[in-house]
Design a protein around this nucleic acid. Structure first.
Length: 589
DNA sequence: GCCGTTTTCGGCCCGACTGTTTTCAGTCG
């Protein structure tokens, strides 16, 4: 079982216990345990073998036993008992924004056990007859069900990508498979995907499919034919494993990576799908010829001869096009752009030199200051900013002014010991509900980096939201606006902000906007980040990491920036230290 | 359920906003 699967099982257990009225502190402890497991870098199974499970902070005797059972049996008896008591639809109700525990308990007690029943009750104005429920709650139910419906059957990048990579390793390790790659929506780094699509090349496709079908991971088979098998993987996420002959691989990879529009644009330039009638797949003259030639040379190990990406470049070359990055293969218009030589030179993960949004256990982070710094160093960063929460965000143990100054003294001491690595002292300061900022200018002046973020009053009217953001953007000490729209993908709508207004103000004031890399946020979204580039607004790609492991989420932020067409020069944290310092020090407009 | 002990049970992040009522509990972050 994966760490995330175990975390989800524990979180589900916490939710079920909560609905059944269990001690809230127990519920919170289990929920915290789930979070801790999710943030671990080492597989829980490894820690279990080493006997290190109980040493983890937040995992005690009870959770340890629960986790061991999940690892060994793949399920938990306690969880199964709880599931028998509470129908799954009731758990879903907890996901509805504005609907909390009390309301869910009321609905459950009145016999509502599915979202459909609940929605019907809301639409027919029957819910308002229940104690403590009124018209506004009915509206929240109807809106919430619509939100969940849009999300249903879709999985965030943060879940799908790691699982896909694990399956990919499995395929690549099979001796009969000459190459395997991720394709489809996931290769284009879409925010939500409906399935993992993997493509493998083999001289014995039927044998590979047989092997995959017999593997325990493919137990819940959904569909199959002679070219693919589709099964439900962890969390029920559908996986499609498709096997082609080696000569068809590249054409099929291109065909399945881009949208239908992208493929159509390529076809109009002569691209032929795999398994074309003449038996030759690929571009005008059959790009696969080279691939096959490569395969037949070098004693079959053509990976050494020509890399998969190079082979894809050959495919595009045959169409007289430069290689088009997967993240851009969307509308088909990128093909004309490519032809005109107007494709952006997209930012890459390797261009990233630092991270400007990092939490530690001084506020609501899990890892210590020292752990975050060493994790940043081992990622090869040149600089990093520590930005814990500010005083008003009490739930996140935000720092009082004196605590903030104490932290900064600690950071300076730590920074003085670091060579070839710069540690900035910063803060993620709350933009308060009434438009005030959480600290006065005299303390903000002492900071190397100030991120200003909205965490409260997310349902305010637009003019109020604008007043607040305006105060932050116009403040001479605010460098970056954190997660600028406040959305949580599939869970929470953004607050009411006119993005054009925001971008204009950012451009005018020289305020940097964040791409928050968390796969739950990706905020700015790719379309918004694209607009930001057009207005000349600088972007910082930050992780907002609360533990060491999540520093790696930078990859999602970079993928999002690539979908927006951003280049290295558009991004603050690709720039060398001297330039970063200059940018942070420049007077704002 | 976890933690930290003043080792064996008590404490566990909290303040603002919102919805439902009519003075406060639920919900959110």
């Amino acid at each position: 079982m994966h760490n995330q699967e175990i975390a989800w099982a524990l979180a589900e257990m916490a939710n079920l216990l909560e609905i059944l009225g269990e001690n809230p502190f127990k519920v919170r402890a289990i929920r915290k345990g789930a979070m801790v497991i999710e943030g671990l870098e080492t597989p829980v199974s490894v820690l279990s073998v080493r006997g290190q499970l109980a040493k983890i902070d937040g995992i005690g005797k009870g959770l340890c036993a629960e986790i061991e059972e999940l690892l060994q049996a793949g399920e938990s008896r306690q969880l199964q008992r709880l599931r028998e008591k509470v129908p799954p639809g009731v758990l879903d109700m907890l996901q509805l924004p504005g609907i909390g525990l009390r309301a869910v308990r009321t609905f459950f007690a009145e016999g509502y056990t599915t979202l459909e029943e609940l929605e019907e009750g809301a639409r027919k104005h029957r819910l308002r007859l229940l104690p403590g429920i009124a018209a506004k709650t009915e509206l929240a139910v109807i809106r919430g069900v619509e939100l969940l419906r849009r999300r249903s059957g879709k999985f965030g990048l943060g879940v799908a990508r790691p699982l896909a990579e694990e399956l990919l390793r499995f395929l690549q390790n099979l001796p009969e498979v000459s190459r395997a790659e991720i394709t489809g929506d996931l290769r284009r780094s879409q925010e939500m995907v409906e399935e993992i699509h993997l493509l493998a090349a083999s001289q014995e496709p039927a044998a590979i499919l047989d092997l995959v079908k017999k593997h325990p991971m493919a137990a819940k088979q959904l569909a199959e034919d002679e070219t693919f098998v589709r099964f439900a993987f962890a969390f029920g996420l559908p996986v499609r494993i498709e096997v082609t002959g080696e000569s068809d691989f590249i054409a099929r990879w291109v065909e399945t990576t881009g949208t239908a529009q992208h493929w159509a644009a390529l076809q109009s330039r002569g691209a032929r799908p795999a398994k074309a009638s003449n038996g030759v797949a690929g571009g005008q003259q059959g790009s696969s010829t080279e691939c096959r030639a490569a395969a037949e040379s070098d004693e079959g190990d053509w990976r050494r001869f020509i890399s998969t990406q190079e082979a894809e470049e050959v495919f595009y070359e045959k169409l007289h096009l430069p290689w088009i990055p997967p993240e851009l293969r969307e509308t088909g218009k990128e093909v004309a752009q490519a032809e005109a030589g107007e494709l952006p030179d997209l930012v890459e993960l390797g261009d990233i030199l630092g991270d400007f949004h990092i939490h530690t256990n001084w506020s609501d982070g899990v890892s210590s200051l020292e752990e975050m710094v060493s994790a940043g160093r081992s990622r090869g960063y040149a600089y990093m900013a520590i930005t814990d929460h500010s005083q008003s965000l009490a739930v996140a143990r935000g720092l009082s002014e004196s605590k903030l100054r104490e932290q900064h003294r600690t950071i300076r001491q730590l920074a003085a010991r670091e060579k070839d690595f710069t540690l900035f002292s910063g803060i993620e300061m709350d933009i308060l509900g009434d438009g005030r900022l959480d600290y006065a200018d005299d303390i903000l002046r002492e900071m190397d980096v100030v991120i200003a973020s909205v965490h409260t009053g997310l349902r305010q009217e637009r003019h109020k939201v604008h007043t607040r953001l305006e105060a932050a953007l116009k403040n001479p000490h605010v460098d970056i606006i954190g997660h600028p729209t406040g959305r949580l993908i599939g869970t929470r709508e953004p607050y009411d902000v006119d993005i054009d207004w925001l971008l204009d103000l950012a451009a005018k004031t020289g305020t940097i906007l964040e791409i928050n890399s968390s796969p739950d946020r990706l905020d700015l979204s790719a379309p918004h980040a694209r607009l930001a580039k057009e207005r000349g607004v600088m972007i910082a790609i930050n992780t907002d990491a609360h533990d060491r492991a999540r520093l790696s989420e930078m990859a999602y932020g970079v993928a999002n920036a690539r979908r927006a067409g951003l280049e290295k020069d558009d991004i603050l944290n690709t720039k060398p230290l001297a330039e970063v310092k200059k940018i942070l020090a420049r007077p704002k407009g």
